[in-house]
Design a protein around this nucleic acid. Structure first.
Lengths: 348, 348
DNA sequence: TGGGCATATGCTCATTCAGAGTATAAGTCC
DNA sequence: GGACTTATACTCTGAATGAGCATATGCCCA
């Protein structure tokens, strides 16, 4: 069925378009996520004038045999923290995402247990919900939605042409659950991107406005231009900006992580060896940005055989002591997609 | 909470590791998938001496504003086919994945309706199951498993040290469902990677053998070295090799696509505007490599509100005429994760 | 010492959903 | 007209889900 061999002449053309090819500089970025008492946090470092941003480095061709090794080296040199999970996230390569020529950024999602950090560039744990305040629904619907975002969406719809209107309306419904549509906790990146287009996040306000965009299917990889100069507590727009397009990358990471919660046991990578079921639920709720029904959550965890009791008890609960559990790594080979099958990450 | 501004001196170090930085050449690759009558197919082109491979090109910095535009241009110039879905797949950047210096490959998954192709490099639709014969369970358990793969696994386990044994056994159970573990249709890449390590796929046989590997969590991005010279029907090992590490990339694409079936309505991008429910099922089965319970499938599709009847009927069924349906794009905004909730892609 | 409070844990109940089977309708082929 | 093929409708059962109530076991403080 495949065609006969050799057609070197024709095949030459595949690589012939190298005429316009150029070598790009490769940047590695890490979104290292953990969970504090009740807050999901990501690691930031200082990027000089550009303010806070993700740990980033250029791929060192002499040292790093694989991309993941490069990220490992990066996080090691910035924090020394032991990273318990790595996953390639996305490659950002739009023109204009970084100043001075094209730069490709390969971003990784990483998970670690929470602990204080020290390092050469003042690493610190930033609350994910300082970046995306509209993503935390644990104490009810965020006020920001009705105060800022929905009005901005209305305005955006109002100033659209008749052609654009249905698409825009659909997009607003999809991402922010406008109208009778549902809020999908996973669509973090979609929401950030729309907020960016609405011009209500700091990066977009500092830079040029609307863009139009391609509108095709699939994940858009449009870049946020270089941001102004986010300093502590002193920024415009909703949520705290990061250097370059790093807030976008963080949004992609949170989206990926929330999506994974349902079908892969990744939560355990931010938890200590043993933990109570309440702590487990607390961490899941922190990451999902949603409260969960307590009894059902325990039933779920139990029936999924994700954990096993250690026989030890935590007395510091303030109430009845709670049994300590540990993650059963064996489930990985027992079921195709182990995880807290939170189908719609259903709340109470 | 964030530290006070400015620490330019320290921050300099973040980017100071540029000392060893190098600019890499960026290759774009597309895994364009469609479904023939009953076979999932991906588009291959001729790569000269290296045989069949994926459509690939170097990123043209002058033309392509975004990576996705580059892929669009690539598929356009190779085939002219209208692509209905794009999604970034993975970035492969291990040293040694391509001859002659480091090359980063950014791979995209693309979907199109099936139609004959023409182009400068003899594009053709290759059956996915010619690449991965062990992935097609529609007519029962593939013989290849018991004839070749399981014996190779046994041998691999037998020659492992006592340290390696539990890890290896677990991995075998996880990927190939050895023992009483279940076969997860989604783990296409894991299976290809293990088969590669077992030395039973052509690429691994032509090149050096075992490697050891890192063994950490997360997706491994190890590269398959340059392959021998896959010619039509004339290769060693199981399944047909592709040029370079392109079969690995194809495995990643099939894995992603199978995973997406359950929670995103991507099937419809390979179907024509209208279709019968049987055709829909046939396409899903082709991609999933599994047969599905017919009555339940229809109930699923109906209850998910994914399609709506057109009122027209297809008379060419050979039996009772079937009603034609069309995809309801609106579901995208009605439910968080629309798709054929094939939880375990459950069969009959 | 015992009540108030907080937390953990156990159990019930109604509803929905997934898997599997049976029955019927409406065409084609010979 | 009968055999065969395909489409479609309906039933049944056990499991999973969402929500609630009840009980156990600690602490704090009067």
């Amino acid at each position: 069925m495949p065609a006969p061999p050799d057609s070197a002449a024709a095949a030459g053309r595949v690589r012939a378009s190298q005429a316009g090819a150029s070598r790009a500089s490769i940047e590695l970025s890490a979104v290292l996520i953990s969970v504090d008492e009740t807050t999901p946090r990501l690691l930031t470092v200082h990027h000089g004038r550009e303010g806070l941003g993700l740990p980033s480095t250029h791929l060192d061709d002499r040292v790093d045999r694989t991309l993941q090794q490069g990220v490992r080296r990066l996080v090691g040199s910035e924090t020394g923290l032991p990273v318990r999970y790595f996953e390639q996230l996305y490659t950002f390569g739009d023109r204009g995402r970084a100043p001075g020529g094209r730069e490709l950024a390969v971003a990784y999602l990483a998970l670690a247990r929470y602990q204080p950090v020290h390092g050469p560039n003042e690493p610190s744990w930033l609350s994910c919900y300082e970046l995306f305040p509209w993503e935390d629904w644990r104490s009810g619907r965020p006020a920001l939605l009705d105060d800022v975002i929905l009005p901005a969406i209305d305005e955006w719809l109002a100033r659209s042409t008749l052609d654009e209107l249905p698409t825009r309306r659909e997009r607003a419904e999809l991402t922010f659950g406008v109208g009778h549509a549902l809020w999908d906790p996973v669509r973090v990146l979609d929401r950030y991107e729309l907020a960016y287009e609405l011009g209500i996040v700091g990066e977009a306000m500092a830079a040029s406005s609307g863009d139009g965009g391609e509108g095709g299917a699939g994940r858009r990889a449009r870049a946020a231009p270089v941001t102004g100069n986010p300093r502590a507590g002193d920024w415009r727009g909703i949520g705290m900006p990061l250097a370059l397009d790093h807030r976008r990358i963080a949004a992609a990471a949170l989206e990926r992580l929330r999506g994974k919660l349902a079908y892969r046991p990744v939560v355990f990578e931010v938890l200590p060896e043993t933990f109570t079921l309440s702590r487990l639920q607390q961490v899941v709720e922190a990451l999902a940005g949603q409260v969960l029904h307590k009894q059902n959550f325990r039933r779920l965890v139990a029936s999924a055989n994700l954990v096993e009791p250690t026989g030890e008890w935590d007395q510091r609960t303030g109430g009845r002591p709670a049994e300590l559990y540990r993650f059963r790594r064996e489930v990985l080979r027992e079921r195709p997609a182990p995880g807290l099958g939170l189908r719609r990450l259903g709340g109470p």
